[in-house]
């Protein structure tokens, strides 16, 4: 019995010794190399210290103030039941549990996810289409750039106001035209689908230009010979797009998808101005619900837990997008 255990132990020892030796060797080698390098630069290789770490300090401080400390106050709220500033109770993960089970929150989560999916499905192809049809050179380049970028220059709540009026069936040009020219019943203040379509159309109008500009920048970076080669090879317009332009858009489209996902998943101002989350809960996205809980009802505990879960969801989806988009097609 003791023999049997001794042998493996010995082996194990031998192995670790071996490994340790090898590691020490490697370390010594590396040290020698480093010293050789440094020797060229400096006379005394021994005078080394870690003061360079101080250079990281400004980043640490600013990140602490901009991200960590605010986040920690939210974490602090999320684990307490706060009755009044002086009267609070530690409740552990209770709020997380109740928020994640709340049917209203779940419905808003699904709704927001659906909204983001639709935004991406509409804005990315539209943006690319717009970018492809923009002129590559000539006097029209700057004209189209300005025209396309125009919606991006308008503040969020103004966009909301514009659409709030534009889509009104009585006095709004868009809403009136749909009702009286196309002859379709349309009233976003009463009909859930109409409200959804209005908010979606507004987002597409507001943010497709961003995708288009990013894609345009990507397209502009393709050297002329690629297009010339495609002509020589007899490639159709579609083949040229599919095999030359699209592969070169991978990088910018990754950024566009991430930006548009994050932004649409956190959309607040515009639907707040246009529909206020209604009719009913039809356009009550996560952020609108959150502000209702946090500011409207002043339930800081649940709002804190909600915020953190929200934050986590955005992080996870972005991570998945990023990983998938950068890994594929290697």
């Amino acid at each position: 019995m003791s023999e049997r255990t001794a042998a493996p132990a010995g082996q194990a020892d031998g192995r670790t010794d071996d490994q340790a030796d090898r590691r020490a060797d490697r370390r010594a080698e590396r040290r020698a190399e480093r010293q050789a390098e440094e020797g060229e630069r400096r006379a005394d290789p021994r005078r080394r210290n870690n003061r360079a770490w101080l250079l990281v300090l400004p980043v640490v401080v600013s990140v602490a103030f901009t991200a960590v400390i605010p986040l920690m106050t939210v974490v602090n709220f999320s684990v307490q039941d706060i009755f009044s500033p002086g009267d609070r109770l530690f409740v552990g993960l209770e709020w997380f549990r109740s928020v994640s089970r709340d049917p209203e929150v779940r419905a808003a989560f699904v709704r927001t996810l659906l909204f983001s999916a639709q935004v991406l499905l509409l804005e990315i192809p539209l943006g690319v289409l717009l970018a492809v049809s923009m002129p590559r050179r000539g006097v029209w380049v700057s004209v189209t750039l300005v025209l396309v970028a125009l919606p991006l220059l308008i503040p969020w709540n103004v966009v909301g106001t514009i659409w709030q009026i534009f889509a009104r069936p009585d006095i709004g040009l868009g809403g009136w035209a749909v009702n009286n020219v196309l002859g379709l019943e349309f009233n976003y203040t009463l009909d859930a689908t109409d409200a959804w379509i209005t908010v979606l159309a507004m987002d597409v109008w507001h943010w497709t230009p961003l995708v288009a500009l990013l894609a345009y920048a990507g397209l502009r970076s393709i050297p002329d010979p690629y297009f010339q080669a495609a002509q020589i090879d007899g490639a159709s317009a579609w083949a040229t797009f599919r095999h030359i332009q699209l592969p070169r858009l991978r990088g910018v489209l990754t950024i566009a998808i991430l930006l548009r996902f994050m932004d649409s998943f956190m959309i607040y101002t515009e639907p707040f101005v246009v529909t206020g989350g209604g009719p009913g809960n039809a356009t009550s996205f996560l952020s609108i619900l959150l502000s209702k809980i946090a500011v409207g009802q002043f339930d800081l505990g649940p709002a804190g837990a909600f915020s953190l879960l929200y934050f986590l969801a955005v992080q996870i989806v972005c991570y998945v997008f990023f990983t998938v988009l950068t890994r594929t097609g290697r």
């Binding site: 010339q228 007899g234 490639a235 095999h243």
Partner: peptide, 27 residues
């Protein structure tokens, strides 16, 4: 007309085979 340029112009996400086949497949 076939033309070859000074610097490599490739259909980067395609295999070498598909690159070479591309002008023929288009025709």
């Amino acid at each position: 007309i076939a033309q070859v340029f000074q610097f490599p112009v490739l259909y980067e996400e395609m295999s070498v085979y598909d690159n070479l086949a591309f002008p023929l497949r288009n025709r």
